[in-house]
């Protein structure tokens, strides 16, 4: 086969299948319908940002308050321990002083 014949064979027009037009139109319509439909709300950026802000707004202050409450509790517990330690020291030193006084009186 000559080159010209090969080219002619390759470029030979063939009729489209009978349902080609119908299939093509159906597909085009389906794709345009899908493109026209809005994304569900949970897939929209604005909704996601809003939801994230709401969650952050609810969780962060609660977390901060809880942290502050725990720190205050820890501080007050430590303060109570310190006062206890000072009270024991105070009473012990007073006892020592009292013993010295008694010893001095006896001698």
């Amino acid at each position: 086969m000559s080159f010209e014949d090969q080219l002619r064979e390759t470029l030979r027009q063939e009729p489209a299948p009978a349902d080609f037009r119908a299939k093509l139109m159906a597909r085009v319509q389906a794709e345009s319908r899908a493109a026209a439909l809005p994304a569900p709300w949970w897939k929209r950026r604005l909704s996601l940002a809003l939801a994230a802000a709401l969650v952050a707004g609810a969780v962060i202050p609660a977390g901060v308050l809880e942290h502050e409450r725990r720190e205050r509790e820890r501080g007050l517990a430590a303060r109570n321990q310190l006062l206890t330690a000072l009270a024991v020291t105070n009473s012990t030193l007073r006892h020592t002083r009292e013993m010295i006084r008694r010893n001095t009186r006896h001698s």
Binding site: N80, Q81, L83, T84, L86, A87, T89, N90, L93, R94
Partner: peptide, 24 residues
């Protein structure tokens, strides 16, 4: 101060107030 010139709460007072929980 430790031996008395400061108004350090007495142990009994701390106990009553619950400050010395676990202590004495």
């Amino acid at each position: 101060k430790l031996s008395g010139t400061l108004d350090i709460p007495d142990l009994d007072v701390l106990k009553r107030g619950g400050a010395a929980s676990g202590a004495k």
